[in-house]
Design a protein around this nucleic acid. Structure first.
Length: 1152
RNA sequence: GCCCGGGUGGCGUAAUCGGCAGCCGCACAGGACUUAAAAUCCUGAGGUCGCAAGACCGUGUGGGUUCAAAUCCCACCCCGGGCACCA
């Protein structure tokens, strides 16, 4: 007879509602606490899905288990209810989003109750409740006050379908909106930004102490993307530049003029600088020198402002950079050292007749630049993590967004082409950019050169979109030899590739196949290579910093593999080795690699020999007796076969053989025979060898420096800091993480507690220059005109509007409500207007876990005592989709709250578990379109909540993705039916419970199960805990009669998993009170210790018998047992036992 | 391409301080009960050979270490997730 799960659900749901204490967390308790939290859901119209319930059932089981263990457990639930779906539904159906939310919440709650989730509903919260978002606004004000919020007009990700801005974290895949999958546009919009980058380091470092999966931690680390490197300055100049001009400006905006003897001041107000040497890395220093010589002002008196651009004295002729300096001293008096007269002069006062119009124009330019700050550095600063490769920088690349290409101040000669490229790059979608990732495009800036600060070498400058404007300085030095992207670009554009770092264990091993002779006599050699190829190659490689070995092999005429192997293995062959074989040695190398399966960098086979032919090759038979192992092709990054087309037939055949096996086309050279004897012969062979040893891809590892001036021989690690110091660079840390775009142009979100006041804006601007004693907060100074709404006036409530429709122009619908927008400035009382953007979806969820600790507090976000008691969240369970969104934002806010003393712990969530996806029965992701969605409530209706809960937990490990098996539920249904049956049977026994002895074996099993279940639940291994309960039930059913006590134990163990049935069974067993308020059973240590064990008897590692024996038996006793076995006897008969391995309480292995 | 996971019967999985591979469940087969079916209960089952006792093979593939490998090492293949020009 099956039990009526619907009746149980009704009966116990009612009882639990009445029993208010059952799931309530107690404030001010002396008991140890545990805070078990689910990621609170967005209450969608769809209701709960199986993904929700998986995590929620897991935390519910855990919370029930902890309560039974005597902990004071906080296990609350709430609603993250701001957001687009409710708003869109509201727009479509013309209802207020709040009403939609209310309805959905009621549905969610009903469904959660149906699943038997024991939340402390007295602590329910909702992010859209003004009493809640009042504190969201309050936290925003704290961020604002501390200068962590700022307004900026930045290019942002805009979703044209959602009609709102998106955070970087919300753009997924190839630049599509995380929510709706629409391709995201770039738009410039005024935004509120949060300085999450300030916390980048702490967000990174504090990950270490958390019990999160490595996967998740690495996702966060990756997102933060910290990299240590340096900024190095590359002076940029125009090729035709030979002089420098500079202007000095004083505090009054006047410029320093010079009058030559007897002449007018006209036209001479700029000092023409002296000649700039190409190698002069610092144009500014040169100009300073000039200022000192001409006017007596030292480096301390003036400050370099920047670079205005190139000046062309006579249109098109000459390119003279114009630098601007400002006097630091007030009323500085110039004193000419040259006999010329000097004075400060305002351009306004300068009579027209004084000078050329173009000088006046330039002066205006200088003044304008100083005023607006539009000056440029005369050097390009690049960010690199590989300063050790600086000597290998053969060109520089600017991002299309870089100011030096945005405005042509460098005198780029092909600027039309360049700007066309820049525009094209800007219009490329992320999708296109990604698709083109492999082919690197770019345009050279004609006429412009950069100076490598290490060696003074002038290198070309490019603009290319493989350099990102938003990272580092938006400019890079390109080292093609040691960076894959630069390598690809250099290859595409024919730029030099010069390696300056070699692997510390790079070497070249040349094995000759025939007696080596130096033949330098033949005519017609290239002068450079007039030697045997072997010493030539050795020299060439060593010049590149590669250690080279050319071992003499024993018995070269009739080689023996083993002997060669012995000799060869004395050499340091490694992953960075280049192996060069010649003739018979090619066979040796192939054979050796096939045997040893060692990875090497390159394998070069010259005139390979393997094929035997008649008696002349009898001497080679031993060495060649092997099968070519084709897997050798995977062992070397690069394989070359070189053979001459007039070599003998068996060599040519060998070359084809090797080529086929290795998937390499042998290179046929037109001249030369078996190379050894022809030595270098003609140029083809050395060229082929040089090509074969050339870099085929960038070497990006650390190593030892070569060709790097005085740094040659240093390791990369040391050279990195030394070179930065040498070129006066600065060490900097960069992050991939950007500041958080914290505004949405929609209605249904938290209003910002800010107003804009023109009057205060002016006040702030004037105060800024007046310094110090400001009454404005950091945020108000940082954002002139934006004034914080006083805390007392919080919450700034979301007004009612007629239409929630977003405008799509970047204005929120709130902007249309004049009565709400127009307000008084809380500071000066003047007219002001409210911020009409709203906060993004993530705001409310950044701190909700704190509110659960003290949900009704009117005076504070959370009472400090309560916070201290409950923090941190001990276990947090939710989906992996929040890995870099919610979990990063919440950690950021938490750290800010920590800094202002609101919270006591550095991190909010100690242990975090991501439940794995539940896939449809077809093993595909569940989706409406695939029609494979399982609704948990359907399962509850059919089989009851207990079945749903246990089945979801039994499917497999919580964190794994696993498919739903509709038939698999039957197992759980049967299990619970059998539990019901056996408990009823046991409860019905009127007689006294059977004597203990009858049940002693079962009792052991019960206690072992208690142990197993307890440990498994502690580790969230619910699938194995349930399995243990099943095993116990199977055993119980074998008993003719059960004792009530064992039955009770079983029900207690079942209670967290199947709360309804367990409660019913508890009642049937005649026990008082709720089963969920009982104490979790403890196991008896004596009962779980076995005194017998299964001794495994192995012969030569194979199991031959298993006997059950006393624990602790000795080796000889075990041996006795073993030899007594028939099967064992059979196997050892007539054999000699040479060894015995005995593992106490486990096995004995007899070796014969 | 890079970084994390992972690969075990027909299926979900169990066993990882190296020590009996396949627990538990599903599906399956045979039997009992039944007029019959369902449900329930009992039994069986990794593969090959064998009446059986048992033997051999077997944890993605190949190799290695070891008395002993799903577990450790090396190489490769495949699947899932994340990142993707971050210098």
């Amino acid at each position: 007879m099956s039990y009526d799960h619907k009746k149980l659900a009704r009966k116990w749901a009612r009882a639990w509602v009445k029993n208010k204490k059952l799931y309530a967390a107690q404030d001010g308790s002396k008991k140890p606490k545990r805070y078990v939290l689910d990621m609170f859901p967005y209450p969608s119209g769809e209701g709960l899905h199986v993904g929700h319930t998986e995590g929620e059932v897991a935390t519910d089981i855990y919370a029930r288990f902890l309560r039974m263990q005597g902990y004071n457990v906080l296990h609350p639930m709430g609603w993250d209810a701001f957001g687009l779906p409710a708003e869109n539904f509201a727009i479509k159906n013309k209802v207020h989003p709040a009403k939609v939310v209310k309805k959905n919440v009621a549905n969610f709650k009903k469904q959660m109750d149906a699943v038997g989730l024991g939340y402390d509903w007295a602590r329910e919260i909702n992010t859209t409740d003004p009493d809640y978002y009042r504190w969201t606004q309050w936290i925003f004000l704290k961020l604002f006050e501390r200068g962590l919020a700022y307004e900026a007009e930045v290019p942002i990700n805009f979703c044209p379908s959602c009609k709102t801005a998106l955070a970087n974290e919300e753009v997924v895949g190839n630049g599509v909106c995380e929510r709706c999958g629409t391709v995201v546009e770039r738009r410039n919009l005024r935004q509120w930004m949060l300085k999450i980058t300030t916390y980048a380091d702490r967000l990174l470092k504090d990950l270490d102490g958390l019990e999160w999966s490595e996967q998740l931690k690495s996702m966060q680390r990756n997102w933060i993307g910290r990299s240590e490197g340096a900024e190095l300055d590359f002076r940029v100049y125009h090729e035709k530049q030979d002089k420098v001009l500079f202007a000095c400006i004083n505090e009054k905006g006047e410029t320093l003029l010079e009058r030559r003897k007897g002449g007018a001041f006209a036209g001479k107000w700029l000092f023409p600088g002296g000649k700039i040497e190409r190698e002069d890395t610092d144009m500014v220093q040169a100009a300073m020198r000039e200022i000192e010589e001409e006017a007596g002002f030292g480096a301390r008196d003036v400050e370099y402002l920047g670079f205005l651009g190139y000046f062309h004295p006579k249109a098109g002729k000459g390119n003279i950079p114009l630098l601007v300096f400002r006097m630091k001293k007030k009323n500085a008096k110039p004193a000419a050292n040259t006999g010329h007269e000097l004075k400060w002069q305002s351009v306004d006062e300068m009579p027209k007749e004084y000078g050329h119009d173009e000088f006046v124009e330039m002066f205006e330019g200088v003044r304008d630049a100083v005023k607006t700050g539009r000056v440029f550095p005369s050097a390009v600063s690049v960010f690199t993590t590989r300063a050790d490769t600086l000597y290998g920088a053969t060109y520089a690349v600017l991002a299309p967004e870089h100011p030096l290409v945005q405005e042509n101040i460098l005198g780029i000669e092909n600027y039309k082409e360049v700007s066309a490229y820049v525009v094209a790059a800007k219009n490329k979608s992320d999708l296109e950019r990604t698709a083109e990732a492999k082919g690197k495009t770019g345009v050279r800036l004609e006429g412009v050169k950069a100076v490598n600060p290490a060696n003074g070498r002038a290198i070309p400058v490019y603009v290319a979109d493989y350099v990102l404007g938003g990272y580092g300085t938006g400019a890079v030095m390109a080292v093609p030899a040691h960076d894959e992207r630069d390598f690809a670009f250099a290859q595409a554009h024919g730029l030099p590739i010069e390696d300056v770092v070699v692997s510390a264990d790079a070497n070249c091993i040349i094995v000759h196949g025939s007696p080596q002779k130096d033949r330098r006599q033949e005519a017609g050699y290239l002068p450079d290579n007039e030697r045997h190829w072997l010493p030539w190659l050795k020299e060439t490689m060593e010049a590149r910093g590669v250690k080279t070995f050319a071992p003499s092999m024993p018995t070269p005429w009739a080689p023996r593999h083993e002997e060669w192997k012995k000799e060869f293995e004395k050499l340091p062959v490694g992953e960075q080795s280049i192996l060069v074989g010649h003739s018979a040695a090619c066979s040796f190398l192939m054979r050796w690699l096939g045997e040893r399966k060692r990875k090497v960098k390159k394998l070069i086979l010259i005139a390979p020999s393997k094929v035997l032919k008649g008696e002349e090759t009898a001497r080679l038979e031993e060495l060649y007796a092997f099968d070519i192992d084709a897997s050798v092709r995977t062992l070397a990054d690069d394989i070359e076969i070189i053979v001459a087309d007039d070599d003998i037939d068996r060599i040519k055949e060998s070359a084809r053989l090797f080529g086929e096996a290795l998937g390499v086309k042998p290179l046929w050279l037109p001249h030369g025979g078996h190379f050894t004897f022809l030595a270098m012969g003609t140029h083809e062979f050395p060229e082929a060898l040089a090509a074969a040893t050339r870099m085929k891809k960038a070497f990006t590892d650390d190593g030892v420096l070569i060709r790097s001036g005085k740094f040659t021989g240093m390791t990369s690690a040391v050279a990195r800091t030394e070179i930065v110091r040498f070129v006066k660079g600065k060490e900097v840390v960069n992050y991939k993480l950007h500041d958080w775009i914290f505004a949405r142009q929609r209605y249904w979100g938290e209003p910002f507690p800010l107003v804009f006041c023109e009057c205060c804006a002016d006040e702030v601007k004037s105060q800024k220059s007046k310094v110090k004693s400001s009454t404005f907060s950091k945020g108000e100074l940082l954002n002139p005109g934006w004034i914080a709404v006083p805390e007392k006036q919080l919450p700034v409530k979301l007004p009612n509007v007629k239409s929630y429709e977003p405008s799509g122009t970047g204005e929120s619908p709130l902007a249309k409500i004049d009565t709400w927008v127009k307000t008084k400035c809380p500071r000066c009382g003047g007219p002001a207007r409210r911020e009409t953007n709203t906060m993004p979806q993530w705001a409310g969820s950044c701190w909700y876990y704190l509110r659960f600790m003290d949900p009704k507090n009117k005076k504070a976000l959370v009472d400090p005592k309560k916070e201290k008691y409950w923090s941190p969240v001990d276990v947090y369970v939710g989906g992996a989709e929040h890995a870099v969104l919610h979990l990063l934002y919440a950690r950021f806010w938490h750290k800010v709250l920590y800094d202002i003393g609101i919270v006591s712990k550095k991190e909010p969530f100690h242990k975090l578990i991501n439940q794995g996806l539940i896939l449809g029965p077809d093993k595909q992701k569940m989706s409406k379109s695939k029609g494979n969605v399982i609704n948990p409530i359907t399962i509850v209706d059919q089989h009851g909540a207990d079945v749903l809960r246990m089945y979801e937990m039994f499917m497999g490990p919580l964190e794994d993705a696993k498919p739903w098996d509709t038939q698999g539920i039957a197992g759980i249904v049967r299990f619970l039916e059998r539990v019901h049956k056996i408990v009823r049977a046991t409860a019905g026994i009127k007689k006294a419970t059977p004597a203990k002895s009858q049940n002693s074996e079962l009792e052991r099993s019960v206690h072992k199960t208690i142990k197993k279940a307890t440990e498994d639940i502690e580790h969230f291994h619910f699938n194995t805990a349930i399995s243990a309960l099943m095993i116990l039930l199977n055993e119980m059913e074998k008993q003719s009669q059960m004792s009530k006590i064992n039955c009770q134990m079983f029900v207690l163990l079942l209670a967290p998993f199947a709360p309804f049935l367990a409660e019913e069974m508890w009642e049937i067993l005649g026990k008082k009170g709720s089963v969920h308020a009982q104490t979790w059973p403890k196991f008896d240590k004596k009962l779980v210790v076995e005194n017998m064990f299964d001794l495994v008897i192995q012969i030569n590692g194979k199991v031959r018998d298993v006997v059950r024996v006393q624990k602790g038996i000795s080796e000889s006793e075990a041996m006795q047992q073993a030899t007594a076995s028939e099967n064992v006897k059979k196997h050892i008969e007539g054999k000699e036992i040479c060894k015995k391995i005995f593992v106490p309480d486990r096995l004995i292995n007899i070796i014969i």
